[in-house]
Write a protein that binds this DNA or RNA. Structure first.
Lengths: 138, 138
DNA sequence: TGTAATTCCTATTAAATCGATAGGATTAAT
DNA sequence: ATTAATCCTATCGATTTAATAGGAATTACA
């Protein structure tokens, strides 16, 4: 299941992408509009900032903004930052690979084979979807 | 992430599908071969039995067996029994649908749109994979 | 220069879930 | 009867998740 962190993060990014204002978007505005607990949202946007997807301005009239245009923000990147590995088992993860301890030979493992297919089909979606698609700018 | 329950369950089903023995397959044999805690595996196989995928025979020389041939056992069914919903959010689940409380209009929700695509691409894999594929009988 | 408004940071908590274990009841073969 | 297997219920510890709390740092602007 998708974590609320990811769900809130995606909604927030969509909100920011849709904003036409000159000024950066404030956490309070997003929280109110999207019904997200503000303090929780703060920490999520901070994560997105540290990963380089968002930029921020502190102090009065501060807030968050996209560092690049929505068309350039791929779901692969967003999902990895918010949700972690895209693969359902780490032994088929491209970016977070780890060997299974209970599995001698990966290539002989039936779960491995299945999960590679799931990973690839999911990746195919995320690689072909940008924030612009989410925010309806295409 | 895939739960260990599902991972163990898939491995166990594969093991049973590969068994050429006349007699049903015993939990102890699977546990030993696949390095799965036996008591945990017991409860997993029981779940698979209650769902109708496995049959069982009690008492001495008892064990578990497939109720239909591997080619007829779809991953959609197995995954739903072991892991639950295939969708990442319940508002796009076909078999476990639930409305989001924080979301007024589903069709206007950017997360919803994205997760429908992920669901469909994952379903496409599970609908086209049977236990026979996992156990290498094709 | 002071005050208000905002992001930034750390710690804590409550609840839920997961993985595993324990102990025994029930059933069937020999 | 005895043995060996599934079946059933309950519990436990660890981890993760979602959220809250409190305040430090920074900036705009009067």
């Amino acid at each position: 299941m998708l974590s609320k962190k990811t769900k809130y993060g995606l909604k927030a990014l969509t909100f920011i992408a849709r904003s036409t204002d000159e000024n950066p978007v404030q956490v309070s505005a997003i929280a109110k509009s999207e019904q997200i607990p503000q303090k929780f949202l703060e920490s999520i946007l901070l994560t997105l900032k540290k990963s380089g997807i968002l930029g921020s301005k502190k102090g009065k009239h501060g807030g968050y903004y996209l560092r690049v245009s929505p068309e350039e923000i791929l779901m692969t990147e967003v999902m990895r930052v918010l949700e972690g590995p895209i693969a359902m088992v780490s032994c088929v993860s491209l970016n977070f690979y780890e060997k299974c301890d209970d599995c001698a030979d990966e290539h002989a493992c039936s779960v491995n084979k299945l999960m590679i297919q799931v990973r690839d089909s999911t990746l195919n979606v995320f690689r072909n979807t940008t924030l612009a698609d989410l925010s309806g700018q295409n």
